[in-house]
Design a protein around this nucleic acid. Sequence first.
DNA 1: GCATTATACCTACATTGTAGGACTAATGCG
DNA 2: CGCATTAGTCCTACAATGTAGGTATAATGC
Lengths: 109, 109
Amino acid sequence: MLGEFEYLVLTAAVRLNSAAYGASIRSEIATLTGRVCALGALYTTLDRLEAKGLIETWMGDATPLRGGRAKRLVRITGKGIAAAKSFYETVERVSHGVSWAGNRESAMA
Amino acid sequence: MLGEFEYLVLTAAVRLNSAAYGASIRSEIATLTGRVCALGALYTTLDRLEAKGLIETWMGDATPLRGGRAKRLVRITGKGIAAAKSFYETVERVSHGVSWAGNRESAMA
DNA sequence: GCATTATACCTACATTGTAGGACTAATGCG
DNA sequence: CGCATTAGTCCTACAATGTAGGTATAATGC
């Protein structure tokens, strides 16, 4: 099953859409969670996700910018979406009615 | 940070309340997720959660039942609740607006 | 051409997930 | 009483994931 960081990466890639590549995914994660992750952590995870067929990556063009190297672009696959969905649904199902997940209607009563 | 399985165990313990112990947590997880976990996996996780101060465990009485051995009872600590809450909120925040997490209102529009 | 900058990527280690089997203590029954 | 049966715990080993830091490469600007 998916780990938490893998889920984060998958989600960030979906949000960024065609602008998803190593560095942008990293800053997206920093924005979303408030924690910065090491680049090494990210690329390792990208490799593993690709090996599992949950994302596809390919090299894009260089951007006309000082230091604008070619980017490794990322796109989530159908399989990746299914895995992310399944992770999310498990968390939701399990959390339903528990105090920290909004038990306003009191699960027990 | 918390792993997914650790979150599952924490949540199951909260749901079971005073009836939370190794075997009952295991069947709760099976009910919630549809997947059975090995007992070894569970006890290892219990040990690690206790080491991190997220749960407390102690030995209870034997039940008057054939094979009714003493149970290792489990209770989540305040720290455990905080960790679970934080895990849940991260997943929620990150998933907001993404297709598999109910984008009925179309995040982009 | 050389400094500067954006970006990729490799290597090693820590933490978490998973599995299976072994051990223990209680009851029930002959 | 003692042995089979059963509910339950727990140990050991390994696989998968998470994390960190450092290094390499290619583009621009001067």
